[in-house]
Write a protein that binds this DNA or RNA. Structure first.
Length: 780
DNA sequence: ACGCTCGACTCAGAAAGGTCGAA
DNA sequence: ATTCGACCTTTCTGAGTCGAGCG
């Protein structure tokens, strides 16, 4: 098979441009109307990069390692030993397996099981009928293909250099043959076109996987700026200086004032001091980090002062360095890697009053990294000389490419593919399918917990009451938390102090949820719920749990008896999506202005964001901006009024021309030789001057169109103002990315002739590529 | 406990909006 | 006199980051 990878094409050049460049006869089509097509194309073109076909031997190879991987621990005696337990494969489909252990080099010793599957573990080849967009896609691909070939023959045998198994075919025959092949493969990359919805939790995530590992932050370069101790300059050793610099980076934030932050930092800082330094530095309160802070500021400013050409050059250089890390090859298909950068060292911040804030997050070294990669794939070269990877594993039951243990929280950090990848896309789709399935069960479930509210069993009453809130208020389930985590709660972990009961049936919530975001809401509840809550809090202290007999596990276990695979978080997805669908269906648009449609959508989105309590901090200049808009509105209204009066007057007097007075702001008086600062001063001077009245004659016949213009302006300002006010502390993005089934939006856009890219950004379009073919009749 | 999704915050770059000179 | 487009400033957006929560 001929490799058809398109080489040397920058990612961000739209394909249509490439086409028009390579094929002069063809007219480029507009970018706007083809965003989706382009994305689909891009999904397709990477597919061609492969010449490894999983089914080339007629069977699919499946490794079936069971068990967990342990992350590299450099402190362990033999950190390079992997702990891959092997266990008999427990795949759902009871595949026939063939064991085959394989000895690797000493360095990467591991055990593996190879499976010969009996064929039907492959996803069904059945695909949905290609829609018009894909017919178009095919045509475009063919054109690209030809363009690329022209390109290749001009440049020589690029592909041969790439190690492709076959030379480039140039004859018409071969070209046609390729085309045929391509037709068969056409659907390959479109995982969402396949009937694989049933494979809910196929434990095998990939067959082949190769990538370039991770990108480390640049090593620390000492700046040799001192700190001041009791006013005296002290130059620190590089190790201590680095940590001091972490603190200096935060000097302008509120963190440095918090006792917890200072305490944690001081403890960790001392550990990075030499004995000599320890003797000198006795108290954090006596240390002044300003010299380092100023150095950092100067660096920042220097960066800002670069010309845009310089900035661009730096950016491009950076991109070139990073390039190899941005992609992985999974089962022969090129996929984008999401977070290939190792987190840089610094101070742990945390959200809210986090007990660990201020601790030093240590620098991650190659020895800390576990690389997960296909058995046959080359192990990425360790980018730091003199170091080696902690572990190399081949675990195809997970989707991560690399990982390390976080020194602060003890949790694991992973490198994953991007949101547009098959791994992420499939599970995203499954999430929404599960939520959609809940729709069929929801009536029964509501009946169940309504009945359970009055059960004889206290546990069941608590469970039903909690579920009532999870369903009605879209609360998170609320797992137990450790002492060394911020004190935040969800439904099951609510404490007596978090609610206030108001007779006859109102409940006032006030607690800190995820990310220490405050949830304040007062709701009226059904009688039995109120009665139950009274009972649950009776005789308890404020810090006692309301649902003391309930565990998250217990709740989820119960949910699983009501619907397979159901857990508490599904309610959030379900309620968010169903709310959007309901709100969007409430209004039919005929030929309204696009802005009105978008505002309507945003309103619906906003309702969901409020339901989910997705907040954002008030933008600092919000009030100032509102004031500015208000005066803009006042002036627009004034002008409108003047025009209307003028029209009235002209009609009454039967004049074909009339005098209108407009109050305008005086314009700044710039001269060519003025500096930036002088211009600034002039602008400021003029802004404080009173408005000037400007009298002019206007033709009566022009007035109506001028009035219309003015009205539109007023409307627009009003709309801007109300949206800005309404959305000042509501974040729409979170629900759009995580909770709203994109098919609802796609269907609405199709039905109302709204271009989808007005609602989904480029990354969102990529993330939701799987949903783009939804029909306008899609029903959540 | 691991592996995943969810989440707010940040900052660069894009878009919007304003200014100015010329047509 | 208005309009156009180049240029500059301000505001907005979205992609990335890294921390939090769920199962």
């Amino acid at each position: 098979m001929v490799s058809k990878k398109i080489e040397n094409i920058p990612e961000d050049v739209p394909l249509n441009q490439l086409i028009s460049q390579s094929n002069g006869n063809r007219k480029a089509f507009s970018r706007e109307e083809n965003v989706v097509t382009n994305l689909l194309e891009r999904a397709g073109r990477t597919r061609k990069s492969e010449d490894v076909v999983p089914t080339k031997t007629g069977k699919k190879r499946n490794a079936t390692q069971e068990g967990k991987t342990r992350f590299a621990d450099p402190r362990a005696e033999d950190s390079r030993e992997t702990t891959f337990d092997t266990e008999s494969g427990k795949t759902k489909k009871n595949k026939r397996m063939k064991k085959e252990s394989k000895q690797k080099t000493d360095e990467e010793s591991f055990l593996s099981l190879e499976t010969k599957a009996n064929g039907n573990d492959c996803v069904s080849e059945e695909v949905s009928r290609p829609s018009a967009i894909f017919d178009k896609l095919k045509k475009e691909e063919f054109i690209i293909e030809r363009a690329q070939q022209n390109n290749d023959s001009a440049k020589g045998t690029k592909r041969a250099e790439k190690g492709s198994p076959k030379e480039v075919g140039t004859s018409e025959d071969e070209r046609e043959a390729e085309e045929e092949e391509e037709e068969e493969e056409e659907e390959d990359y479109r995982w969402w076109g396949r009937d694989n919805q049933e494979d809910e939790d196929d434990t095998i995530k990939w067959t082949t996987l190769s990538h370039s590992g991770v990108l480390f932050p640049p090593e620390y370069v000492p700046h040799n700026k001192p700190i001041l101790y009791r006013g005296k300059e002290i130059y620190l050793s590089p190790k201590a200086e680095e940590v001091a610099t972490f603190f200096a980076q935060k000097l302008a934030t509120e963190y440095v004032k918090k006792p917890q932050f200072r305490k944690n930092f001081w403890e960790d800082f001392q550990q990075h001091l030499s004995n000599d330094e320890k003797k000198k530095l006795k108290s954090l309160d006596e240390i002044n980090f300003t010299p380092i802070y100023e150095h950092l500021e100067a660096q920042k400013n220097a960066k800002k002062a670069l010309t845009s050409a310089e900035k661009k050059a730096i950016r491009e250089e950076e991109q070139e360095k990073v390039k190899k890390y941005t992609v992985a090859i999974v089962d022969g298909k090129e996929e984008k890697v999401g977070n290939f950068r190792v987190e840089p060292p610094g101070l742990f911040l945390g959200r809210g009053e986090h007990p660990l804030m201020g601790k030093v997050k240590k620098r991650i070294m190659p020895e800390d990294i576990t690389i997960n990669i296909g058995e046959d794939a080359p192990v990425p070269e360790c980018p730091i000389a003199g170091h080696r990877w902690g572990q190399i594993i081949h675990n195809n039951k997970v989707t991560w490419l690399a990982g390390w243990k976080d020194s602060i929280t003890g949790g694991y950090k992973y490198v994953w593919l991007s949101a547009g990848s098959r791994f992420k896309g499939q599970s995203d789709q499954q999430k929404y399918e599960k939520a959609r399935k809940l729709k069929n069960y929801i009536d029964e479930i509501r009946k169940d917990y309504t009945k359970g509210l009055q059960s004889d069993s206290l546990e069941e009453r608590q469970r039903s009451t909690a579920l009532y809130f999870i369903d009605r208020l879209a609360l998170r389930v609320g797992n137990e938390k450790d002492e060394d985590e911020a004190d935040t709660v969800g439904c099951c972990s609510l404490r007596v102090e978090h609610i206030t009961l108001h007779d006859p049936n109102a409940v006032e919530f006030d607690f800190l949820g995820k990310d220490s975001i405050r949830y304040i809401n007062t709701v009226t509840v059904d009688g039995p719920v109120f009665y139950n809550l009274k009972e649950f809090v009776r005789g308890k202290k404020p810090e006692d749990e309301i649902f003391d007999k309930l565990t998250v596990q217990g709740l989820n276990d119960h949910l699983k008896t009501l619907m397979p695979g159901l857990s508490a978080k599904v309610f959030r997805t379900y309620n968010a999506s169903i709310t959007l669908a309901r709100l969007l269906s409430e209004r039919k648009f005929e030929s309204e202005d696009l802005n009105n449609k978008l505002t309507f959508y945003n309103q619906a989105n906003k309702e969901v964001a409020i339901l989910c309590n997705h907040q954002r901090t008030l933008p600092v200049s919000h009030e100032q901006q509102m004031n500015r808009l208000q005066s803009k509105l006042d002036e627009a209204l004034e002008w409108l009024h003047e025009l209307e009066q003028a029209l009235k007057k002209a009609k009454r007097d039967k004049k074909d021309s009339v005098e209108v007075v407009q109050y305008v702001r005086p314009k700044p008086n710039f001269r060519n030789d003025m500096t930036q600062i002088e211009r600034e001063a002039e602008r400021k001077r003029v802004a404080e001057l009173p408005r000037e009245s400007k009298v002019r004659q206007m033709k009566t016949s022009n007035l109506p169109s001028q009035i219309e213009k003015a009205e539109q302006r007023v409307e627009k300002i009003r709309l801007d103002m109300s949206m800005k006010e309404e959305l000042k502390n509501v974040a729409l993005g979170t629900s759009k990315i995580n909770y709203l089934d994109p098919r609802i939006t796609v269907a609405w856009c199709k039905k109302n002739q709204v271009p989808i890219e007005k609602i989904f950004s480029k990354t969102l379009l990529t993330k939701f590529l799987w949903s783009m073919e939804s029909s306008e009749d899609f029903c959540f």
